[in-house]
Each structure stands twice: as C-alpha cells, then as structure tokens.
Design a protein around this nucleic acid. Structure first.
Lengths: 224, 224
DNA sequence: GGCCTTGTTGTGCAAGTGTATAAATAACCT
DNA sequence: AGGTTATTTATACACTTGCACAACAAGGCC
C-alpha cells in the first residue's frame, strides 16, 4: 500500500490538530483531569503530562491557565471540597418534613450514592494527608468541616426543640460533634469496604446511632 | 586562619566516616525515616535521598536492605498498621474491671494520646488514599480494620451479656459497626483539629455516644 | 597484626519532572 | 478575504528521581 496517505510517514512535520475551547471549559476540564489523575495514581503520579494527556491537551497548556502545578492542585482540592459540602447540604432542603425526618434524610443522603464513593474517598484521603503540612489545604478543610458541623448543629437544635427538650450550647455542640463523627466514620467504612454492607444498611445504622445519641425514642417503622 | 585544618579544603578526597549497624537496627531506622518523610512531605516528597538523609546514611544503602522503593513503602505501612492496632488492643487488657468499664476505657484510650496524633493521621490518610488503587495496601488495611471491629464486637457482647440483654448476631454486628464509626470519626476530628477540643472532651463525647448506641442508662458520675 | 567479608559510600546514568519560551494555528474582527 | 490575537503545540533545559555498580573501609576471624 502507498504510504503517502500516512502523515506520520511524510517528511513534512505535521502538527497536532486542536480546537480552541472556552476558558472556563478548559479550566474545568483540566481540574477534572487533575482529580482523576490524583484519584488513580496519587499525588506523585499526577504529573503535568499525565493530567494533560487525560484532558486531551499537551502539558504546556496548563501553564497558560495556572501559574504552576501547586495552584492547579489547590484549585482542584477546593473544587472537590465544594462539591462534597454542596451535595451534603442539598439533602437538607426538604419542605414540609418534620425536623426528625430531615435529620434522618440528611444522614441517609450522606451514607448512600453518590457520597459513598471510592474515588471521592481516595481524593479526600490523599489531599487531607497533606493538610497538617500544607496550611492552604488545612484551611480549605477546616472551612468545609465547620460548615458541615454547623449544619448538623442547626438540625439537631430543631429536632430537640420539636421534642420540647432543652439543651444548652455545650450539649448542642457535643451532639453535633458526635453525629458528625458517626457520619464520617460510617462514610469511611462504606467507601473502603462498600461490598461488606447491603444497600441501605449503613444508612439504617447511621440513623439509629444518631437518634440514640439524641435520646430519641425508637419509632415503630424505624428499621424494617 | 589556616585552612589546613579543614578536610574539605584539602585536595585529598576524604570519604565520609560511618558505622556498621546491626541489620535489624538499620532496617528499623530506614523504616522510621520513611514514615517521617511521608508524614512530613507526603509520598511524592519521600524520595530515597530524603529518607537516607533522615536516617543518617546515603541513598545507595537502601538498596542493600530493600529490593526497591515500593517494598520499603509497603513495609513501612505494615509497620504503621501493626503499631496502631497493637496500641488500640492494649487498652482492652484490664483485669478486674466490668465490661462496661473496659469498653469505656477502650474508647477513651483510642481518643487520647498517643493515638490522637497528627503525624499518625497524616500517615494513615496518605497511605489509605492509595488503598483503592493498590491491592497490597488495601489488604493490609482490611486486615487491621476487621481485627479492630472484632475486638469491639467482643466487648459489646460482654457488655450486653452483663446487662442481661439478648442480642442476635445482626444487632451485634450493627453495634460494632456504629461504635467503630464513632471512634474513627472522633479520632479524625481530634487529629485534624485537636486544639478545638479540651483535654478529655473527645473521650467523654465518645463514651456517651457509644453508651447511647448500646442503650445503656447514663451513669451518675458519667460526665462531670 | 593481616586478611576477608560485607555493610557503606560515592558516582554515574537514563528516564521523568516542572518550567520557560518560540513557533504555529484556530477563531474572531472588519 | 486578509490581518490580528491569543490559545495551543512543540521543544529545550535544568533539575530530580530510582536504580546500578565500582570503590572503599569497618569490624570480625585467624
């Protein structure tokens, strides 16, 4: 067969074809490619060339959108944290539901798809492992954590108020810390060993544990 | 001043002095240096030269004790997991104490020094972030996790038996999962934001949450 | 003491890293 | 269409990385 049809065999150095994307779109793609790379190969495997390859561009382009690799990683982590807290809080907007129902829905939402996800967990662990050494990461985490705990504390206050139970600020804080721990711990267990739990099992365990923490009487149809 | 006293200024290339250490001692030092490096700079910062520098040797020596960097990291992680589970289980050996007291002591031990430690947490997170991609790491973790949960389940069974409460295997398992989650979650909170909690506060929160999960009546002097 | 084993150092190397920068070209404007 | 801009590619470079290997010396053995 004639080789004149193959551009690689012709002595004219042909450049790669490319498309110009919108700025925001390219940044998003690069961040997503970064998160994919980190989740799959860890921070050491997430090189600029790997990220660029995954995003369908060449490595040099990254420098056009980010000052350096570190800034890209920080923006990627901020995106991840934002996505996680956003999904978690979205479970709280339920109109016409009792506080107790909203709390249960919140717990269940955080212990099912898509929050229970091995990829997200891998990312979370990889980044947070460097939080104690990197002030920027530590700050981003602290921000998200306190926001989450405040949401919990607000719902707990509503639940206790609906039950005509009085609780001072200290007790409220302790409840929020404990409930946050229950959710976090079960989230980790689910992400790391999802196949060990049947569907909805973690959510049921979580709801029961949270209601026990608050001293709520078990409901008739609580655990079928 | 005369420069003849400085060996670096003399044209005779002087080698570095060194001492021969016992094999086990050197391996231990290298592993410890590896853990230090990973905790401080993450997996990407833990290079052979960094590790060797911290261990007080040169990089080439590592190849004398380990086939490659990967094996060194795996042994380091295994050492870490072993140390963590060992400390956790050590809190369970209390002679002459009631099951409830032993459970409380177990929870408290896991929520105080030296288990609550930013360095250990950083190591845990860094390694476990790669567990979903690295079967060897995943297996090492699963092993330690199940061992820990079984310990919890055994103590829970004793506590319930002492309270004359009957619990089938499923309930027992759920209790163990929930209690494990409480401990893990509070452990993370304490490691990441230790200064937000007063001394013993996390332990008190943990004990109350665990006893609530098991439906134990609050004790008089429980939280002073 | 002198010799031998082997723990230890130092150097070299190929591959890969992040960054810098020039060249090319896609898309927009008139 | 032709000219302009700035997105994108491609290449270069200094540096680091893990690994290989030869030289060396510390400590035991005779």
């Amino acid at each position: 067969m004639p080789d004149t049809a193959d551009p690689a065999a012709m002595n004219v150095p042909s450049r790669r074809k490319f498309r110009r994307e919108g700025e925001e779109r390219r940044r998003q793609d690069l961040i997503e490619a970064t998160l994919d790379s980190v989740a799959e190969r860890g921070l050491q495997g997430a090189t600029l060339r790997t990220i660029a390859l995954r995003a369908g561009v060449t490595a040099g382009l990254i420098r056009h959108y980010f000052p350096g690799k570190e800034e890209l990683l920080q923006e990627a982590y901020a995106t991840l944290v934002g996505r996680m807290t956003e999904q978690a809080k979205a479970a709280l907007v339920m109109d016409g539901a009792s506080p107790r129902q909203r709390l249960a829905a919140f717990v269940a939402a955080n212990l099912g798809a898509p929050i229970i996800d091995a990829r997200v967990f891998s990312l979370w662990a990889t980044f947070i492992g460097r939080a104690s050494a990197d002030p920027a990461l530590a700050h981003a985490h602290r921000e998200g954590y306190l926001a989450f705990r405040n949401e919990v504390e607000a719902v707990v206050a509503e639940v206790l108020a609906a039950e005509r139970r009085k609780a001072d600020a200290s007790q409220l804080r302790h409840h929020a810390i404990a409930i946050n721990a229950i959710i976090d711990g079960l989230w980790i267990e689910g992400c790391l060993a999802g196949e060990m739990f049947s569907s909805g099992e973690l959510a049921a365990i979580g709801i029961r544990a949270v209601e026990a923490e608050l001293g709520l009487a078990p409901q008739p149809g609580g655990s079928t």
